[in-house]
Amino acid sequence: MVKSKFAISVHILSLLSTGGEEWLSSDYIAGSMNANPALVRKELSALRAAGLVESKEGKSGGSRLRKPASQIRMSDVFQAVKEDHVFGFSPNLPNPDCAVGAGINDALDELFTEIDHTIYNRLKRMTLAAFTKQVINAQA
């Protein structure tokens, strides 16, 4: 589900942005999230594929941001984790002989595409650096 993947990825990236050039282990990241390191590694894999993080193996290994947090837009994170529309379709196929069922998925697809674009455009206006600063300042 994109909602939880986005939250998990933002948490990971925000933590990495506070680490600078330091390599943070999946165990360390998982500790911040109260999550299993395997979940962290799975999400790190997607973030690596999107070019947002880099990782190295070994005793002194871990992950870090691939570029400065000021150059990562929250929309980049959204694109990295988004598999389909933010809202999903019903698992049941609608009845094509029904006046509503015949056209519901096409109409929803159009609406969901518009919603996705709205979310993307809003997230494009914020960098990871600005978001992380907001998180840290909220604790001060």
Rank of each mutant, 00 (worst) to 15 (best):
P37Y: 02
S14N: 09
Q79E: 15
S63T: 07
I8H: 10
L47T: 07
A38T: 15
G103T: 13
H117A: 14
D109T: 08
S9R: 06
L93W: 00
G101Y: 06
T18V: 09
L47P: 10
T118L: 12
G88N: 08
G61P: 04
T127H: 02
L123G: 02
A107D: 12
P37E: 03
G62A: 09
L128W: 05
N137P: 00
E54F: 02
F78E: 09
I115S: 05
L13W: 00
I29P: 01
F87M: 06
M33Y: 02
Q71L: 12
V40N: 03
L128S: 04
V10M: 09
R125Q: 14
E110N: 12
A30R: 13
F87G: 10
L52Q: 06
S55Q: 10
A46Q: 15
A35W: 06
I119F: 05
S25M: 03
E57M: 08
D97Q: 15
H11I: 13
V40K: 08
D109H: 12
S9G: 10
N137E: 13
T113E: 07
R125F: 06
K67S: 08
K124F: 06
S4Q: 11
K133Y: 03
T127Y: 07
K59L: 14
E43K: 13
A38W: 12
H117R: 15
L24P: 08
G51M: 04
V81T: 07
K124I: 05
V53T: 05
T113M: 08
Q139R: 14
S60V: 11
R41Y: 04
L111N: 11
K59N: 07
L65G: 01
I72Y: 05
I119V: 08
V100P: 01
E114N: 11
T118Y: 14
V2F: 10
A7K: 14
H117G: 09
A80F: 04
S4F: 07
T127M: 06
A129V: 02
A49T: 13
V40P: 06
R41L: 05
N121K: 14
R73M: 04
L123P: 00
K133H: 10
R122F: 14
A107S: 14
A35H: 09
L108K: 08
V81F: 07
D116G: 00
I119C: 00
L65T: 00
G62P: 04
K56M: 08
I119N: 05
N105P: 02
V86G: 01
I12C: 03
F112H: 01
E21P: 12
A50M: 03
L111A: 09
R122W: 10
E57V: 09
R64H: 06
P96W: 01
I8G: 10
G62K: 06
G101H: 04
H85C: 01
V135N: 11
K67E: 11
H117W: 11
R48N: 14
F78I: 03
Q79T: 14
A38R: 15
